[in-house]
């Protein structure tokens, strides 16, 4: 072997033109191509940064028109009074969806990783993953035609017992449940649809991390006489906490930015306190419904772009917080 390779090297030194290796022989251009390819790869990476910078610059640049007009000067107040109901609606819908969706998603992940029969759990997990891929417009159609009518009796009940009855007997009803539900096309139905949509996402992230819990930790807990729930509480959850948080934050980000489900489910526009009667809106819904019909460069157009910027900043903040929590917990989790 050794002699062989020294022979080859000697040969090559003698007659560099003579090819011995197919890979080497085609490589005439040598260092230039090497540098070129490295440059190309680097350029692609920089291009991505440019795209993102472009998104940010474009959004901020075109938002200026919503805050400042040459004839009128600063009009921040007008924009804020226009934007706050949408921002509030977005946050409320996303948080309602999270309250309903996250506990169930974590329980489903726990079911798949620790409760389901081992043979079935892989299939169930795969089916849940597939459900995460269903397009949002399909969930929107389902919410519009199936869920909204089915929710109407619940809304009547809520309105009766949380608003009408206390108002008549105590003089004050909870304003969130005032009004008539109509066809059930309100932001509460929208947040139920969003909860269903984010459930597979949160659940698959949590399941991944639950499965990775060190077997030794689990077995140690069981060997000390812990019941299954105590084992989960003592071994699985501490290990999985950063994963659970990042999964929930991922779901929150998705719920904040979700457009079509809200557009299709909610009807009505004006802001109101009630979450069970038609009305209210979210930022993505406002943009999707109006952007096509608004002339380029008008104040309204600038306002819509500025709304997009607000949404971008909110989702960015959520993602950053998630990352920060995960990195902070990693140091203390005692895993590895």
């Amino acid at each position: 072997m050794t002699t062989d390779s020294t022979d080859t090297r000697a040969q090559r030194r003698k007659s560099p033109k003579k090819p011995e290796n197919a890979l080497v022989s085609a490589d005439r251009a040598g260092a230039g191509l090497d540098r070129g390819f490295a440059g190309l790869a680097k350029a692609a990476g920089i291009f991505i940064l440019i795209i993102l910078a472009f998104v940010a610059i474009f959004l901020s640049w075109n938002s200026v028109g919503a805050l400042y007009q040459e004839e009128e000067g600063l009009i921040i107040g007008r924009f804020l009074s226009y934007a706050w109901p949408f921002a509030l609606g977005t946050v409320v819908v996303a948080i309602l969806a999270l309250i309903m969706g996250a506990p169930i998603a974590i329980a489903v992940a726990l079911y798949i990783s620790h409760y389901a029969p081992p043979k079935a759990s892989k299939t169930i997990g795969y089916i849940i993953d597939l459900l995460a891929a269903i397009p949002s417009v399909v969930y929107g159609a389902w919410g519009m035609f199936v869920l909204a009518p089915a929710m109407v009796p619940l809304y009547h009940w809520l309105s009766q017992w949380l608003y009408t009855w206390p108002e008549e007997n105590l003089g004050w009803g909870i304003p969130f449940f005032a009004g008539s539900p109509g066809l059930g096309q309100n932001i509460f139905t929208a947040s139920v649809v969003l909860a269903v949509m984010i459930l597979p996402i949160i659940s698959s992230v949590c399941r991944e991390i639950f499965i990775q819990t060190p077997k030794l930790h689990e077995e140690a807990a069981l060997a000390l006489g812990a019941t299954r729930w105590e084992m989960i509480k003592m071994a699985v959850f501490p290990f999985a906490r950063p994963g659970i948080i990042s999964g929930v934050m991922l779901g929150l980000g998705r719920a904040l930015g979700e457009t079509m489900a809200v557009v299709m489910v909610v009807s009505g526009l004006g802001f109101q306190l009630s979450i069970i009667s038609p009305g209210n809106s979210t930022i993505p819904r406002e943009i999707a419904l109006n952007f096509g019909e608004t002339g380029h460069g008008t104040e309204r157009w600038h306002q819509l772009v500025a709304l997009g910027l607000v949404l971008f900043v909110i989702t960015l903040a959520v993602n950053m917080v998630a990352r920060w929590i995960v990195s902070r917990h990693k140091e203390f989790s005692g895993a590895n």
């Binding site: 998104v55 457009t259 943009i287 772009v305 949404l311 971008f312 989702t315």
Partner: peptide, 13 residues
């Protein structure tokens, strides 16, 4: 960061 961009913002872009 880009993974978290809402799809409607991508449309605006």
């Amino acid at each position: 960061v880009m993974t978290g961009i809402p799809s409607i913002v991508a449309g605006l872009f």
